[in-house]
């Protein structure tokens, strides 16, 4: 056996195990999904080829339209504030010392809680009967607010819950980005007498541009797939006002057994997430000259 051949075999030996799992548990279902979406299929194995009918139905489904609107609204209410708050926090906490360390710990802490626990806690914060906020309002002589049953408040309520839960990861990413900015740039800027604002705008933000892009892309993709919070907090109510696309996929598949239709919606969501991710990437990087 020649050394070159042995190297090749070694290459496959190293990447093989992952590729095997990847092919079996990701690629195969991905292809299966596309095939299933072209069928009228139920959860228990019955299949009937119908071409693109499921997609046509999806485009004309008012419930899906509502879910789409809810999902986009949630993403809009979550991603920009999350990014801005995370950036501000990271800027403030990117310093040595006990105070900053403790606060970093506090702001990261909710990240480790599972969605069940987050919704459990927030249900009893938001509920108008005995919730934490209601108790506070009552103490102040005000009427409690029905966050989870008012169609206009339920999306913001889920957004706040999600913000509280998701803050830690972006802060962490941005902190990591900030720590990579070479210190001597700041020193040079200080020698030039640049103010804080100028430093932030001219040096810091451009330096962590890629990190911010990553945060926005990851969060957009994540929030477009919001599921647990809506299912556990409101079940999509009232009247579908907080039903997200993924919750709808869950209902259609396991509640109504319409696997083909559910899969078609999932494929549409997949397309939407890819398109958005690419768009964001393009928007941020198109002005970047190949600077090296």
């Amino acid at each position: 056996m020649t050394a070159a051949l042995r190297d090749r075999l070694a290459g496959y030996a190293f990447v093989g195990p992952f590729l095997l799992v990847y092919a079996a548990v990701l690629i195969v279902p991905l292809v299966m999904g596309i095939v299933i979406s072209l069928h009228r299929a139920d959860l228990f194995g019955r299949r009937e080829w119908i071409g693109l009918d499921n997609y046509a139905q999806a485009l004309g489904d008012p419930v899906l339209h509502q879910a789409f609107g809810n999902t986009v609204l949630l993403a809009v209410l979550i991603v920009p504030p999350l990014t801005v708050i995370a950036l501000l926090l990271a800027l403030a906490l990117n310093r040595p010392g006990k105070f900053a360390a403790v606060l970093r710990g506090v702001f990261f802490s909710s990240l480790v809680l599972s969605v069940t626990i987050v919704t459990l806690i927030w249900r009893f914060i938001l509920t108008p009967d005995a919730g934490l906020i209601a108790e506070g309002l009552e103490a102040a002589g005000r009427a409690p607010i029905p966050f989870l049953s008012d169609p206009d408040l339920v999306i913001p309520a889920i957004a706040v819950t999600t913000l509280w839960w998701s803050l830690g990861f972006p802060v962490m990413l941005i902190l990591a980005g900030l720590q990579q900015v070479p210190g001597d740039i700041y020193e040079a800027a200080a020698l030039d007498g640049a103010g804080r604002w100028t430093v932030l705008r001219r040096i810091t933000l451009p330096a962590i541009r890629r990190t911010l892009l990553l945060v926005v892309m990851l969060q957009t993709a994540a929030q477009l797939q919001l599921f647990g919070q809506a299912q556990l907090l409101t079940g999509g109510g009232p009247g579908g006002a907080s039903r997200t696309i993924v919750l709808y996929i869950f209902e259609v598949s396991f509640g109504r057994w319409e696997l083909g239709y559910a899969t078609a919606i999932a494929e549409l969501l997949f397309g939407m997430i890819i398109a958005l991710t690419l768009l964001q990437y393009w928007l941020v990087t198109r002005h970047e000259e190949p600077r090296a």
């Binding site: 990701l26 195969v28 991905l30 999904g33 797939q225 696997l259 559910a262 999932a266 997949f270 997430i273």
Partner: peptide
């Protein structure tokens, strides 16, 4: 780029 939702049902 593949979200979990795109594969979870067939999986």
């Amino acid at each position: 780029a593949v979200p979990e939702q795109a594969v979870i049902l067939p999986r």
